[in-house]
């Protein structure tokens, strides 16, 4: 599906990326920021998987009963590693947020800036 020459699937990924970016920049709460980072990450994964699609394609598993065309396996492998890296990054960020709350009693960036 295209609109004004733009691929709508890609446009959806751009919209998701922008929602995540807005959360990351505009929200003061650190957990909301990390959620926004996750939305951005998944939008990039969605973009990469979409780019590997092929019309009428099957999953790239060559067994009896499957026939070409196959979707490209490279984006899948990249996204697979990306998802696991994303959860690790999230875990580190959340552990830091818990530490920040334990030390300063708040996780709002606005209030953290006010601290001496």
């Amino acid at each position: 599906m295209t609109l004004f020459g733009l691929d709508l699937d890609y446009v959806a990924c751009v919209v998701l990326f922008c929602v995540g970016l807005y959360m990351l920049v505009a929200k003061s709460n650190l957990i909301k920021k990390v959620l926004g980072l996750n939305v951005m990450e998944t939008s990039v994964f969605a973009f990469i998987v979409t780019s590997g699609m092929i019309d009428g394609g099957q999953e790239p598993i060559v067994v009896a009963g499957s026939a070409p065309p196959y979707t490209s396996p490279i984006p899948h492998a990249m996204v697979l590693t990306g998802i696991v890296v994303a959860v690790s990054v999230t875990a580190v960020a959340l552990a830091l947020i818990a530490q920040i709350h334990a030390h300063y009693g708040t996780i709002e960036v606005d209030e953290l800036k006010e601290l001496p």
Binding site: T50, E59, T71, A86
Partner: peptide
């Protein structure tokens, strides 16, 4: 879209593990 491997991982990690980690922190 023909990416079952990615879908399994996202279901377990994105919906399961990440949510639990967030809820623990909250």
């Amino acid at each position: 879209r023909g990416a079952p491997d990615v879908a399994i991982t996202e279901a377990a990690v994105g919906a399961g593990v990440t949510s639990v980690l967030f809820l623990l922190t909250i």
